[in-house]
């Protein structure tokens, strides 16, 4: 059996497994638009009360597609590798993965592709359609759809690596739930999910510029809108996508080093 066949099996198994829980995904058709509606009402009130059309480089008309795209992107790239890995380390289940003739990382990555393929059809497309009806949002109303797709691909990989880094903490601590919660809370702010990163003070923006987290939410949305700007730095869509590719390589090196150091601490005693 060649490597591609193995991946195909993992992919289809995961896809079938996810189909079994399709109704859980369908809840996004309600929660997604409701979340956006809440943000819409809040930002509408903010813009009206502020008496200005532009806040931190965003007009209200740009803010709506920004929020929609951030939400849509999260459907495409979501994963909970960190929780899975930490659990597998804690319960000793990682042993069975390590014995398989495939890398744990690659296995989980292919599973993620299978999982998110269904999310594209069940969550992303319907929610985009509903947002079109409610907020007049049109996903094709951009000249950068291909660059957006590239930015989503980078977000997909970066999110996976970040989650993997967090999961690796499971080698060092018996329970890492608290740390994962801290990250979860901070991630909404450092990724640009709740507010565009350009709203922050210049010093904070400079820090964000060098971190990979912006590629998970802020960058795909800015690429979709046509122009990237953070900490006074402006990039065309292809430039920021290229910078994202460099960040992927850096993160890969970090995760690899962390994994190699941490795996030595693993002591599986499963049956």
């Amino acid at each position: 059996m060649n490597l591609l066949q193995t991946e195909q099996i993992i992919y289809w198994t995961q896809l079938k497994n996810t189909v079994a829980y399709r109704f859980s995904m369908l809840i996004s058709l309600l929660t997604g638009p409701l979340h956006l509606f809440a943000s819409y009402v809040i930002f509408k009130a903010i813009y009206e009360a502020s008496g200005t059309t532009v806040i931190a480089g965003f007009t209200f008309e740009q803010m709506v597609p920004y929020l929609v795209i951030v939400m849509g992107t999260q459907y495409l790239i979501w994963d909970n590798t960190h929780e899975n890995l930490a659990d597998e380390i804690r319960h000793g289940n990682l042993t069975s993965f390590l014995l398989k003739p495939i890398s744990y990382w690659w296995y989980q990555f292919v599973r993620k592709i299978g999982h998110r393929t269904l999310a594209f059809f069940i969550e992303f497309l319907p929610v985009m359609f509903i947002c079109g009806l409610i907020f007049g949002f049109d996903i094709f109303k951009t000249n950068n759809l291909l660059w957006y797709a590239a930015a989503v691909a980078i977000a997909f990989v970066i999110r996976y690596f970040v989650q993997l880094c967090l999961g690796i903490l499971g080698f060092w601590f018996v329970r890492v739930w608290g740390i994962l919660w801290i990250y979860r809370m901070l991630s909404y702010f450092i990724q640009g999910n709740t507010i565009p990163l350009s709203f922050y003070p210049p010093v904070v923006q400079k820090v964000f510029f060098f971190l990979p987290f912006q590629f998970i939410a802020y960058v795909p949305a800015r690429v979709f809108l046509g122009q990237y700007e953070l900490a006074g730095i402006t990039f065309a869509p292809w430039e920021i996508v290229l910078y994202g590719a460099v960040q992927v390589l850096v993160l890969f090196a970090i995760v690899l080093a962390l994994w190699n150091i941490s795996i030595k601490r693993y002591c599986g005693a499963g049956t």
Binding site: A45, I46, Y47, E48, A49, S50, G51, T52, I55, A56, G178, I179, W181, I182, R184, M185, L186, Y188, F189, T194, I195, F199, Y200, P201
Partner: peptide
């Protein structure tokens, strides 16, 4: 500590909005 931080998310959002020049009616 995580749950303590979690409670700060609302004030952080509002603080950033006010910093950027936004207002609430």
């Amino acid at each position: 500590f995580a749950f303590f931080l979690f409670q700060l998310s609302g004030p952080l959002f509002v603080g950033v909005i006010f910093y950027a020049g936004g207002l609430f009616p």
